[in-house]
Design a protein around this nucleic acid. Structure first.
Lengths: 243, 243
DNA sequence: TATAGAGTATGACGTAACGTGAGAGTCAAC
DNA sequence: GTTGACTCTCACGTTACGTCATACTCTATA
C-alpha cells in the first residue's frame, strides 16, 4: 500500500507517515524504484500499535523505545492497551458524571465542591500508564531517583554505597555469588522505595543499557557498570523465578 | 486561590496557567500587590470549561473564540460537551472491540481485514464532527459547497454576494434585524440548491466552526465570519421554530 | 529577627508532532 | 502527450506548553 491508501485507511495524514518514517518509528518495508513508500501488512499492524499508544498519551520517542525494546511482546502490549483504554473509558464516565452534576448545579438543584468540579480531569494519575512505564519504560529509573531524593540523605547514601560495591565487582562474573549478593542488595533497596516485581527489575536492567541517559548516569560510578548491572539483574531475576 | 492550589486541584501545570493567562484564555480575576495571580470560583468554572473543550480536541484559539462569543451560553456548552464526551466514549468502545478482535486474531481464532484493524481510529475529524454527521446527516455537511460548483457561475456569484454582505455585519449582533435578514438570504439560497430543515441549517452553522475546513473557507471573506454565521444561523432557526 | 524553604513572577529559549507550502518528479488514463 | 492525482524532499511555521535562569515574596521556625 502507498502512503495515501494508508492515510485514508487509518485516518492519519500523509505528513504524519512521512514524519514517522523520518524518525524511524514506522519505516515502510519497501520502496518503489521512484522512491515511493510501500507499506506491508506488518507495517499496518505496527501502525495500529503506534496509534494505540499514542491515543493513551505516550510520546513518539517512548513508543519507539517500547517497540524496539527486546522484551517487547505484542500480545502483552495489546492486553495492557486494553486495560488502558478501559481506564480512559472509566475516566470519561467520570467526566460525564461531573458534567451532569454541573448541569444540576447550574440549575440550582445542588451544589458542588471545587474538587468535585474537576473529578475525572486529573490525568497525572493513570495507574496503567504507570504500569506500562514500569514494565517497559525508562521512567522506572526516574521514579527511583525521585523517590530517593524524597526519602532523604540517608537513602541517597545507601544507594551510593550499593553502586560503589557493584562498581568494584564490575569486571567479574555477574552471576557469581558476590555479584548476586550485591545485586540482591539493589533489589531490596529498590523495593524499599518503590515496588518492583522480578520482571520489572529485569526490565529496569535492560533500560540501563538501552537508554544512554541512564547508562551515562550509572557509569559515573565506573565504566561498564550499567552493562554489568543489567546482566546481574537478569541473572538474579531468572534464578529467583526458577525457585 | 493561587496558582499552585489551582494546579494541584485540576491537574494542570502552573506553566499552563501562566500560558492561559498570557494568551488571554484564562485571566485571573485578581492579583495581589506582589503580582501573584489569584483565581476566583468563576475562574475555576471557566477553567473547567476550557479543560472539557481541550479534552475533546479543540485548539486553545478556538476555545477562546467560543468563550468570548457573545452567544456563548454555559448551560448549552455543557450539554454540547456532554454529547462530545459521549461520542468519544463510543469511540473508545469501538477501539476496545478492535483490540479484542486483534487479540483473537493474534491467537489465530479469527482474521481481520485492514479496515477492521483501524475501526475507531479515524480521528481525522474531531469527534464532534462525527456526532454532527450522525445528527444531521452527511449530505448537509458536504452538499453546500459541492452543489454550488455544480450549479454554475451565477449561483457562485450569488453565494459570494451573500457572503460579502454577511462579512460586513460580522462585528454586529448576530440576532439583530440586519443580520437576521442577511442570514435569511443565506437560508433561502441554500434551499435553492439543496434541502435544509431549520435543524439542518442550525447544524450546518455548528459545522462552520467545528470543522476547520469550513471555517477557513468562510473566513476568507472576513475573519470571524464563520463564528458570526453560526450564531446568526442558530438565532434564525430558534426564532423561526418558535413561530 | 534573621534565615531557610516553599511559592511566585517574568523572560526567553527548547521541544514535540506535525502543518504547510514550494518545487519537482511519477504514473495511469483519456 | 497532456492532464490530474499522487508522490518525493527540503525547510520554515505552529501549537501548547517544558525548562531553565534570575529575582522577588511569604511564612514558619531557630
Amino acid at each position: 500500500m502507498k502512503v495515501k491508501e494508508v492515510a485514508d485507511l487509518t485516518g492519519v495524514s500523509v505528513r504524519t507517515l512521512h514524519h514517522y518514517d523520518d524518525i524511524g518509528l514506522l519505516v515502510p518495508d519497501d520502496v518503489t524504484e521512484a522512491g515511493y513508500r510501500v507499506y506491508s501488512d506488518e507495517n499496518l499492524t505496527t501502525l495500529q500499535q503506534i496509534l494505540f499508544f499514542r491515543e493513551v498519551g505516550f510520546p513518539l520517542k517512548k513508543i519507539k523505545e517500547l517497540l524496539d525494546s527486546p522484551s517487547f511482546n505484542r500480545l502483552e502490549a495489546f492486553e495492557l492497551q486494553r486495560e488502558m483504554l478501559l481506564a480512559k473509558h472509566r475516566q470519561l464516565e467520570m467526566m460525564i458524571q461531573t458534567i451532569d452534576k454541573t448541569l444540576q448545579t447550574e440549575r440550582g438543584e445542588m451544589t458542588m465542591t471545587n474538587e468535585e468540579k474537576f473529578k475525572g480531569f486529573d490525568f497525572s494519575s493513570n495507574p496503567y500508564e504507570q504500569e506500562a512505564r514500569n514494565r517497559w519504560g525508562d521512567e522506572a529509573v526516574d521514579k527511583a531517583n525521585k523517590n530517593v531524593a524524597k526519602f532523604g540523605k540517608e537513602t541517597q547514601e545507601e544507594m551510593n554505597r550499593i553502586y560503589y560495591n557493584l562498581a568494584e565487582l564490575r569486571h567479574t562474573d555477574p552471576a557469581s555469588v558476590e555479584a548476586q549478593a550485591a545485586i540482591s542488595d539493589w533489589y531490596t533497596f529498590l523495593n524499599k522505595i518503590g515496588d518492583y516485581s522480578l520482571e520489572a527489575f529485569a526490565g529496569l536492567g535492560e533500560m540501563y543499557v538501552a537508554d544512554e541517559r541512564f547508562t551515562k548516569n550509572i557509569d559515573q560510578f565506573g565504566e561498564g557498570l550499567a552493562l554489568f548491572m543489567r546482566d546481574a539483574m537478569k541473572a538474579y531475576a531468572t534464578r529467583r523465578k526458577q525457585v
